[in-house]
Design a protein around this nucleic acid. Sequence first.
DNA 1: AAGAATGGCAACCGCATAAGG
DNA 2: ACCTTATGCGGTTGCCATTCT
Length: 357
Amino acid sequence: MGRAPCCDKANVKKGPWAPEEDAKLKAYIEEHGTGGNWIALPQKIDLKRCGKSCRLRWLNYLRPNIKHGGFSEDEDRIICSLYVSIGSRWSIIASQLPGRTDNDIKNYWNTRLKKKLLGKQRKDQIFCEKKDLLMKKGRSPSEIPSSIVVSSSDNINNQDPYLPELPVMPPMPYLNQEPRFVNDHTSIRNLLIKLGGKFSSGDNANQSINMVSHIPIDNTLTDVQASLQKDHNFIACNGHVSSSSSSVLLNSQYNILPIQEGQSGTFSSMFEEMCYCTNPQKLDGFEFLYGDMCEMNTSGSSSVITCGDSMEWGDQMNSLISTTTTSNVHCLSNYQRSLQQQEVVLQDRAIDDDINS
DNA sequence: AAGAATGGCAACCGCATAAGG
DNA sequence: ACCTTATGCGGTTGCCATTCT
């Protein structure tokens, strides 16, 4: 029964690849292709490597047009933007960056990009501490330099390089179409199952149906577009955003920002909307985005998120909404703080002097 | 100058899912 | 239908180079 073992584990070489091994593998694949069978490949070229290892070596290093290092600001922005939207789905992110591998992007993110953002976070925290200190010294908010209290709408045109650009593309064709799944519970069930949710009867199921009824699906979307559309429609399906045909803008291939019909779709309006309609919930992997200023009063929020082991589908959906939206909120918050930070630099010395006095 | 600490990257590991037998 | 392997993916590890003390 079953297939033959993939390789003799005891007889395969591990560790760094020698130039001869690279040459063998490259020459063979360039001439014959992989043949769709990585496991058989090393034997064909007399390589003492596991097929899995060959595949990795080819994909991450030997494949033509692979770029190593030297990430541009644009690439940074794309990576951050997508990470905020879809998390650590490196293969999807890599698919939007020609010549980059998921492994490369993952390494770049973990070793540099995250730290880059952490640096920003740290600077912001120092600034907040100074501000708090001033407040504790009896200064009223109105006495604090105006640049510290910056309206988000004042800074819409200043772009943080690590956050999504404002949408400039026209809406995608599918955005105004009517949802296809309204009143089709079988389709809804199948979709829910496809999306990986546990489907249950009762209130949760009804909730799911109500939510999914807002989700237009377009088969022509690329994987990443579908993924992003899915995520952001989930945001839009939050009860606070009640428009039945909420919109998502896909800027070129990657920048994504949810907007609603009848709204200008400005960064600030979206930000405020999200601030007041979500329940901030810290998200694994996003700790670096959190700061004191990001903590929001959510007493007015109607959604109470509980994430336990026995989450039902409705809970999972709520969690997903909360998670995705919150990550955007935190990111936007960080974005705003970054803008504030730029403006505050010139006032920094004055504040220091103030504190010292 | 030498040892320790840190950073960057390639490769491996383990899991989930698809698919062969 | 079930068992087992293949594949793809994200997380983690280990090595080497560089920087710091």
